[in-house]
Design a protein around this nucleic acid. Sequence first.
DNA 1: GTGGTCTAGACCACC
DNA 2: GTGGTCTAGACCACG
Lengths: 130, 130, 130, 130
Amino acid sequence: MFIQINPDNGLAIYDQVVRQVKFGIADGVLRKGELVPSVREMARQLAINPNTVARAYRQLQDEKLLETVRGTGLQVTETAPRQCRRERRELIGERLGSVLAEAAQSGLDPGELSALIEREMSKVNRRRKS
Amino acid sequence: MFIQINPDNGLAIYDQVVRQVKFGIADGVLRKGELVPSVREMARQLAINPNTVARAYRQLQDEKLLETVRGTGLQVTETAPRQCRRERRELIGERLGSVLAEAAQSGLDPGELSALIEREMSKVNRRRKS
Amino acid sequence: MFIQINPDNGLAIYDQVVRQVKFGIADGVLRKGELVPSVREMARQLAINPNTVARAYRQLQDEKLLETVRGTGLQVTETAPRQCRRERRELIGERLGSVLAEAAQSGLDPGELSALIEREMSKVNRRRKS
Amino acid sequence: MFIQINPDNGLAIYDQVVRQVKFGIADGVLRKGELVPSVREMARQLAINPNTVARAYRQLQDEKLLETVRGTGLQVTETAPRQCRRERRELIGERLGSVLAEAAQSGLDPGELSALIEREMSKVNRRRKS
DNA sequence: GTGGTCTAGACCACC
DNA sequence: GTGGTCTAGACCACG
């Protein structure tokens, strides 16, 4: 499964699902025309409530990134990949900007901030390899 | 006023106040023994409800960063500055780590991520100078 | 309901709720993993405002005695019972010490004090049986 | 000075002053016709605000335990000693009852409660001798 | 004036 | 249904 839920990162669970489905599409893990996992299957795998998954899927439909295939499931739309690649930068850029703004406003000096960024980057990379 | 509330950054308002008071102490804007702005004054300046400020201040008291001076106000404790400087790195590091983890997990390639960081940093710096 | 609010005993209502939930856990009325009554239910039964209950529960969470189960309620943590049994003695010992100190300082003679203790003990026991 | 303020015993400061003046009268430290310390003097000695002392004295006047002597100060009334001896038992009895009720309600077993009482009594006595 | 507490009632996210 | 947050407005104790 390409999605990981982190209950402590401040984002609502349904929003994490939305974002990560978008990321999956942007990344090519989910291709246009492909079916996303069913609400029940996704809920089971993430150990969250099916309603929460349903809500995320509903929002993705509203944004024309998923569409129903009668009696079969939800598939990635034709136009989704391009849109998701564009959105990925925006979504991450926004969060990044918000955090960096807080860091700057906190009086943390730029050198210390750079050190922090590097440290957290290497943490992430280490986790990634394993 | 050294505090700015941003209703859209996902953090609860009371939590933003908590964090920014900590940052103010870490940064030396608030020195030990100094009184923080009164609940009512802070609420007026931030245009939020006094109860929300009171809640933030209560939490800061629970963490022994503020203490009441009866009938006078709340003052920064003796030990607060050291603790706040330590915490500042942790608080920002956590949020940073969470965002970078999402970025990595999204499949965004490292070069593009670096570009994003630089872009957002320069945005923040521009805002800072003005 | 295992909780009784007494508006005239000098303790804030939220604090009475905190203490009595701790006592309930110490006493085994609330076991680890069990859900405490919902905020609204508790408020209804004690005829107090839900916010007051919420505040008490929040404090119990801060002390790691309760933890949220999303969308379900608050449950007693694994470690709560041991901690609550320890705290029970402390909480009562403190109040007892404070009253006895006042009694001693008042010049009441020890014999009269003993008589008072016995009288109040028997009052309590009588109330208890009924 | 026969009065000691304890900011942490849950009672308001003015109430502690009221109670302890009553205890002083009950105990004979203050005799009928004698002048109590002036508001300013008392405030200085207890390191509290004169308004707080004034408030306590006002309440004692309302209860006919103190009366003004024009241009001189406040003196203990004729009837105060008898009344204060009676009240002393009530005031202490009430607090004692409230604590014991809480102890009983907490599920603490009677043996453990007795042990606690004894421990706190001996603490008080030790402090008293020194 | 200060903080502390409580009530009433609202909206949100999640199950 | 659940808890979490926020607003509005009140009263009290204290300086």
